[in-house]
């Protein structure tokens, strides 16, 4: 599980995250939604220990990320927003490397690697260098590397990027099962349909601050809309662009 209290992160004078509180319990999938530049990626990177917080507290499974980073990271699996990996390793070598960094070796790791590569249809590519993988294949490989050591908590930044419909569906089922088995998952995404279908709770962030949080029903109430899908709720909360301005941008006609 994840607990974040009063998280603040600045880049120089710019405040990227400003007092964020959120929690992801065991067996729960929480979606972090927000417009570009809202502070989603920064929040996730502080949670997984890549960035240091300027203020506030982050715990993973009861371990403080700042004072007990290694204990917290042992329980985490992380998928970044852009799938950069070592181009000169093969898919299998990358998974073995990822497991080795977490102190996992031996037949159990071999079995996990086989299972994950087969699950994502990467079996035929296991001995190919990553440099020859497509964007979607890299995403699948990084998802596998986040799972290879059997984490209790997953932090995923934009999971759907590059995935085909079959892989996207597989990911949804996988995350549901992960949560049903007691795992905790925090997911940042722009794919509102994915978030609506999968997440138990949603956190809407803008300008580094949580605007609204709760279940879909609770968000509808906060957005003062009786019905409507997540897109409508989201746009009501963070604001959208008027139809007139879109028409003007398309036609270049100021009278539109």
């Amino acid at each position: 599980m994840i607990r974040v209290e009063g998280l603040v992160k600045k880049y120089g004078e710019f405040v990227a995250v400003d007092g964020v509180d959120l929690a992801v319990g065991s067996g729960e999938i929480v979606g972090l939604l927000g417009p570009n530049g809202a502070g989603k990626t920064t929040t996730l990177r502080v949670i997984v220990g890549i960035l240091e917080a300027d203020d506030g507290r982050v715990e993973v499974d009861g371990h403080d990320v700042s004072s007990q980073p290694l204990d917290a990271k042992r329980r985490l699996g992380f998928v970044p927003d852009r799938p950069f990996v070592y181009e000169k390793l093969t898919g299998e070598e990358l998974l073995r490397f990822s497991a080795g960094l977490r102190g996992r070796v031996g037949p159990e790791v071999d079995r996990r690697i086989d299972e994950l590569l087969e699950l994502w249809d990467l079996g035929p590519w296991r001995d190919e260098l990553v440099e020859s993988y497509s964007h979607g294949m890299r995403q699948k490989l990084i998802l596998s590397s986040a799972l290879v050591h059997g984490p209790s908590t997953l932090v995923i930044d934009e999971p759907m990027v590059g995935l085909d419909p079959a892989a996207a569906r597989l990911l949804k089922r996988l995350l549901r099962q992960f949560a049903d088995q007691g795992g905790a998952a925090l997911i940042s995404t722009h794919t509102l349909e994915f978030a609506e279908a999968l997440c138990d709770r949603l956190e809407v962030i803008r300008s580094g601050t949580i605007l609204a949080s709760g279940t879909m029903e609770e968000l509808r109430r906060q957005a003062a809309t009786e019905s409507g899908d997540l897109e409508e709720v989201f746009l009501r909360l963070v604001g959208g662009i008027e139809e007139r301005r879109i028409a003007r941008a398309l036609t270049g006609d100021p009278r539109a």
Binding site: R45, V48, G49, I50, P69, L70, D71, K73, R74, L76, F78, P80, R82, F84, V85, Y86, S98, L101, R102, G103, S145
Partner: peptide, 14 residues
């Protein structure tokens, strides 16, 4: 390590 540094920094590697 460049853009792959995330892999090391998010792992329990001292």
């Amino acid at each position: 390590e460049g853009r792959t540094l995330w892999l090391l920094r998010s792992s329990p590697l001292p």
